[in-house]
């Protein structure tokens, strides 16, 4: 009898623990995915802080995640009919398309985002109605100007034997890795649909150092593990602002531009109020701060001018903007899993 009571109590307590909804969804805490390291600062200082001042009851928690690790958690929560553990997330074009395909993004109610009128319409179209184009960044070549004396001008310069073993890459599960893969394909006569030349080329680049994510790649520059790597303009800018001899070039035939969309996640308990964050991210205030030193995020607001010192990182002239390379992501995204698997089989050590 007594055993039954004890057993019952145990199950009762544990059952209650499992059934009770997580408190975070109710306490007025909005969870937003962000970048790692200093790149997170524009979100923190110019988006979250003003928002929290305007809404004293609400807090926004920024969770660094560069590899889209949150997606699996969102998917699991939705499959179990639980609220999403994440409310907003910035996604580059490839994951943006992927998440639309998975049905994990909330459609934007344009009435709640008046600033959308100020955004470049080409970028807005790319969002397909999910989220807003928050910023754009370039994938180019970052190099250590003390170790690399010949200024690189083309992606081909990564294959210079002088840098053997000192080239850094990220795996093709990241946007950076995917973008570089496409660039390598195009440079060698392939394209989005024919990546074989890229695999050949990257194989001949071995040995290289594979970082788990762009922030780690930036750290490798700091510790002089690598001297040259394809990198985001924003990460290169942060490194340079720390006084490191890191320079960024937009290689021939042009740097790759990737738009980052800030979107509301399906299953969020805060869809209404989250639209205000989407509106704020498009505001002149946020856009001009994010475009300024040392972040140099490309502004998507037509009214925000690119500051002159950003010239190394963001295209400032029409000519430059024309030369930006874009990737036909709808071709790449559906085969992403196969690309990652190919990468692992080729290069996993």
């Amino acid at each position: 009898m007594r055993q039954a009571v004890i057993l019952g109590l145990c199950f009762g307590v544990l059952g209650a623990m499992m059934v009770a909804p997580p408190l975070s969804g109710q306490s007025g805490e909005i969870v937003m995915i962000s970048y790692a390291g200093p790149s997170q600062e524009p979100h923190r200082f110019y988006l979250v802080e003003p928002f929290q001042q305007a809404h004293p009851g609400l807090t926004v928690r920024l969770v660094p995640d560069e590899a889209g690790e949150y997606v699996a958690r969102v998917q699991a929560a939705l499959a179990a009919s639980r609220p999403s553990p994440v409310d907003l997330a910035p996604n580059g074009e490839p994951p943006h398309l992927r998440l639309i395909g998975l049905g994990l993004l909330e459609r934007t109610n344009t009435d709640l985002v008046p600033n959308l009128k100020l955004a470049y319409q080409a970028f807005v179209e790319k969002s397909q109605g999910y989220g807003v184009p928050a910023t754009y960044s370039l994938i180019g070549i970052a190099y250590n100007s003390q170790k690399v004396t010949k200024v690189p001008t083309s992606w081909k310069d990564l294959w210079d034997p002088a840098y053997r073993g000192k080239v850094g890459l990220t795996s093709s599960s990241s946007n950076l890795g995917l973008g570089f893969l496409v660039a390598a394909a195009k440079m060698n006569g392939g394209d989005e649909a024919n990546l074989e030349p890229a695999w050949q080329a990257i194989r001949s680049l071995q040995p290289f150092v594979i970082a788990p994510n762009p922030t780690a790649l930036a750290q490798l520059f700091e510790r002089e593990e690598i001297v040259i790597a394809p990198l985001w303009s924003t990460d290169a800018a942060v490194l340079a602002s720390k006084g490191l001899p890191i320079k960024f070039v937009k290689p021939q035939p042009g740097a790759i531009a990737i738009v980052s969309f800030l979107s509301i996640i399906k299953g969020s308990q805060f869809t209404q109020i989250a639209h205000e964050l989407l509106n704020r991210v498009l505001s002149e205030e946020y856009q001009s701060k994010a475009a300024a030193k040392p972040y140099f995020f490309g502004p998507t607001n037509v009214k925000v001018a690119v500051p002159p010192e950003a010239a190394d990182y963001i295209p400032t002239t029409l000519n430059e903007i024309r030369r930006l390379q874009t990737v036909n992501w709808p071709v790449i995204v559906p085969v992403r899993a196969a690309i990652v698997e190919r990468w692992n089989r080729e290069f996993a050590r």
Binding site: T170, S171, I210, P212, V340
Partner: peptide
Amino acid sequence: GGGSFAVIPTFIFE
């Protein structure tokens, strides 16, 4: 291990 360090636990995660 860095990116693409192939052991089963990191592989499961990926």
